[in-house]
Simulated scan of single mutants.
Amino acid sequence: MSLLYVIMGLMVGGWGARVPEIRERVGAGEASWGLANSVSAVGDVVALGLVVVLVGRVNARRMSLVGAMGVVLSAPFLGFAPTLSAVVAALLGWYSCAQLMATPMGAQAVEVQRRYGRPLLASFNACFSIAVFAGAGLGAGAAAIGLRPGIQFAVTGAVLGVLLLITGRWLPGEPPPPARRGTRRTRIRDRLTPQLRLIALLSFLSGFVMSVSTQWSALYVADEARAGAALGGACYAVMSVAGVLALLAGDRLTARVDRRVLLRGTSLLAAGGLALAIVAGTPVAAMAGLTVFAIGIAGTSPIIDGFAAQQPNVTATEGISVSEAGQMPGFFISPALIGALAGTVGLKYALILPVLTLTGTALLAARLKATPGSVYSDGASTSGR
């Protein structure tokens, strides 16, 4: 199961490290490159719609395997693409395969933790984050020795593809919940129960805040805190490491603390860290606040997905597909909205919005309901221990 998260992370990290070289090769400016990535993100939306339709018709194992093989096979086309239009086409395919892989992958992770009888979602997310670091390191090393991006992606993809073929049969499927045994699937509109609508909203807020972390943290330290580009980049690296460490500790916390309390606490911790960065008068204080912010938001998505995957009368894949559908608009809206606010009132005041978003998440978390028979500690049984 961890291999799926590693595949996703290695390819994302490798792509991120080679973006400057690829952009320069195809002659794209900042505006055209940003537009190309926005257009390519349409593949995410289309693939998520396809996943929503396929859930209940196609086994989670089959979807994740097809998506993962698509990710490793399409990556070399990104590296060899000779023009910007070719890059857009390759990104469309790559994003589509990644989304086809992501939703069932989360459901399979839930099934693995059910079999082991203890929380594991945060650890799987940590595998992804560590793999992103490794992929970025491989990309930087390949660039340093003059290896073309296409060759790097082809070699990495070949190794990962072989490992996937060897281990794919060990991936778990997804049994239907007992209340629905004998039926194939729940209609799409029937999946939107009050709890799943709440989870979709929480996922939207989570995606919004995570996008803020990715897009604006380094810029805030570099420009608003007047620390310069080098310290801005260093801050983002420290935040990334802090997020991984928080994920590695997340499963132990989830096993011992009510998930609603944990979601409220981590959201308020993140809000406090970001507020400190906003009011900080020095670069060091701003970096410290943003590091606390990164620790707080690291485990948000696994907690929300854990609730989504364990709703009554829907399968894990159905629940997570609703969560993914809620999260995606948050990622898309965040850069444009924060950018517009920053252009009007300045980035410092624009970042008050994610502080309010995190506070709202903490308030809404109290309305989540525990799921009987789960592997968590929020008043539920812990069978399998």
Rank of each mutant, 00 (worst) to 15 (best):
A294P: 02
R187G: 13
Q108T: 08
L163V: 10
S40N: 12
T291R: 06
V221S: 04
V209G: 06
R18C: 06
P354T: 01
N59G: 12
L248K: 11
P149K: 13
G9Q: 05
L353R: 00
V244N: 06
L160H: 09
T291L: 07
V238E: 11
S374I: 07
S383K: 12
A249D: 10
A325D: 04
Q99C: 05
L198F: 11
M69S: 13
R260L: 11
I145E: 08
I166Q: 13
L78T: 09
L164S: 08
V51L: 11
P175S: 15
L351N: 00
A316H: 01
G299V: 14
G273W: 00
C235N: 11
S64P: 03
S377H: 10
A107H: 01
I338H: 02
G43F: 02
G135C: 06
P329C: 14
L231A: 05
D223R: 08
R118K: 13
M69K: 11
V6D: 15
A86S: 13
L35C: 07
S217A: 08
A285S: 13
R191Y: 03
P119S: 02
G319Q: 00
G117Q: 03
T371M: 04
L164P: 14
G250M: 13
A86C: 08
W216A: 11
L4G: 15
G265A: 14
G13W: 03
V51D: 07
L100N: 05
R18Q: 09
G272Q: 04
A275V: 03
L196I: 04
L205Q: 03
R256D: 07
N59F: 00
L262W: 02
S334I: 11
D251E: 04
G70S: 05
V314G: 11
Y116S: 13
